[in-house]
């Protein structure tokens, strides 16, 4: 559902003469709203290649097929691992509710034990499957939930003929900060796509925590789609790179693709 706030932003986008001329009156909230309004597509199928590296340079790699669709008031996602052999067949299903009052739901299929298990909805600040992204990072897909932060517009600049905005944010409450595991962030947002290209997160004590970079953002079927998202945990030295390929927004996905019972068999896949 698009909120009144988003409707206002969309109307503003249509009326806006250009991002550059609008920068004089931009606020942090407006930029966050632009990011929230960024199209994701009704459904998408992607191949995700994960590269995890520890500070000694030891590499682990994962490949997964990722399905996602917006189904009414919930975002449904399936991540099905195809490589390496040790995790092949493992699948992870989430039903994320738009309404924060409703609880998200998660299921896990462990191929090794051949069983689908309901698992507790992860805390937003928990790390996602051994990567350096949190569950909230993955869920929000390079957006900042307006309710989570107090945003501040910092500055704008031009680079290679393109405009970028700097914004910062602090959690809206101590509770939110604990949930997210972040005390603040600074981000650079591309005005053309409303996609962040660089995000620095700080821990609750104010120390630098993570650095996220977004590269190779392309229009696919009219939707801005990042190909590479890298994150480095500045405190542990561990890093994760997500590389997306085979992005298909025209895929037809069914209820069976996002059901717990279909998780083990990958029915329809």
């Amino acid at each position: 559902m698009i909120s009144f706030k988003h409707t206002f932003v969309l109307a503003g986008l249509l009326a806006s003469p250009s991002p550059a001329s609008a920068s004089d009156t931009l606020t942090g909230d407006m930029i966050a709203d632009h990011m929230q309004a960024r199209a994701e597509g009704q459904a998408v199928e992607r191949t995700l290649h994960m590269t995890l590296a520890d500070k000694k340079g030891r590499i682990r790699e994962r490949t997964a097929t990722v399905l996602r669709r917006q189904n009414g008031d919930q975002k449904e996602t399936v991540i099905r691992f195809t490589e390496p052999r040790s995790v092949k067949g493992m699948a992870f299903l989430t039903h994320d509710r738009v309404d924060p009052a409703l609880e998200d739901e998660q299921w896990l299929y462990l191929a090794a034990v051949r069983k689908v298990r309901r698992i507790p909805a992860s805390d937003r600040g928990d790390y996602f499957l051994g990567t350096d992204f949190t569950y909230n990072d993955v869920k929000e897909e390079l957006k900042f939930e307006p309710q989570d932060y107090i945003f501040k517009f910092e500055s704008s600049y031009m680079e290679a003929g393109k405009q970028f905005h700097r914004i910062s944010g602090t959690p809206s409450s101590d509770t939110t900060a604990k949930e997210l595991g972040y005390g603040a962030f600074k981000a650079v947002v591309a005005a053309e796509s409303w996609m962040p290209v660089d995000i620095e997160f700080f821990d609750i004590g104010g120390k630098p925590l993570k650095h996220i970079t977004v590269q190779d953002v392309r229009l696919v079927d009219g939707i801005w789609s990042p190909r590479k998202i890298g994150v480095t945990n500045l405190q542990t030295g561990h890093s994760t790179q997500f590389t997306y390929s085979d992005i298909d927004y025209s895929v037809t996905l069914t209820d069976a693709d996002f059901s717990a019972s279909g998780l083990k068999s990958g029915r329809g896949r």
Binding site: E103, E105, Q106, R118, P120
Partner: peptide
């Protein structure tokens, strides 16, 4: 039967 509530799952 199974369901989740918060950080808990009942089975």
């Amino acid at each position: 039967a199974s369901t989740s509530f918060g950080s808990f799952v009942f089975r």
